[in-house]
């Protein structure tokens, strides 16, 4: 199991996937929201890849678009892969949930929803997790304004 093989496997499944970051640490793959389910289900269950451990899940706000970032690892081979889902819709960002594939995503997706406002379709219990239920806005978005709590220098 290595990056080349993983790359070819992903390309065969999702042809329009973009790759990057091989020269740095992990292999990165950027996909569209609609490809997420097919790719993750394949990577989790395929005996060749078997990326069964979602060790980190988060999102990044790039002002024009969001990335939801999934750090995956195979517990057998320690092969690591980073999937980034590019969400262009900033008003109503939506992506499929993966919490039936990796249970840990249930909490992590709630956190991302809480702090970025990205909705996860088919998530069983999508509520705010860290902030209060009646909090207004999504604090980790770059355009979040909170004059009471954040001091601009």
């Amino acid at each position: 199991m290595n990056n080349e093989l993983l790359r070819s496997l992903i390309s065969s499944k999702v042809p329009e996937a973009e790759f990057s970051g091989e020269e740095t640490q992990f292999l990165n793959v950027i996909i569209k929201p609609e490809d997420l389910r097919t790719l993750t289900e394949f990577l989790r269950n395929d005996p060749q890849t078997k990326l069964d451990f979602l060790f980190c899940m988060t999102a990044v706000d790039w002002m024009t678009h969001f990335f939801t970032v999934y750090h995956l690892r195979s517990t057998e081979t320690d092969q690591t892969l980073v999937i980034k889902v590019k969400i262009n819709d900033r008003e109503n960002p939506e992506v499929e949930t993966v919490c039936d594939i990796w249970k840990t995503a249930e909490f992590h997706e709630r956190e991302v929803y809480d702090l970025f406002g990205i909705k996860f379709k088919n998530h069983p219990d999508l509520r705010r997790i860290l902030l209060e239920d009646d909090w207004v806005g999504y604090p980790l978005r770059k355009d979040y304004k909170d004059e009471a709590n954040i001091v601009e220098l």
Binding site: F55, C56, T58, D61, H71, K103, T104, F107, H108, E111
Partner: peptide, 16 residues
């Protein structure tokens, strides 16, 4: 940093 995320062990452990 532009974005910094801590993957804290307790958060995942609690979910189980």
């Amino acid at each position: 940093p532009y974005r910094l995320k801590f993957r804290s062990p307790g958060f995942s452990n609690l979910s189980a």
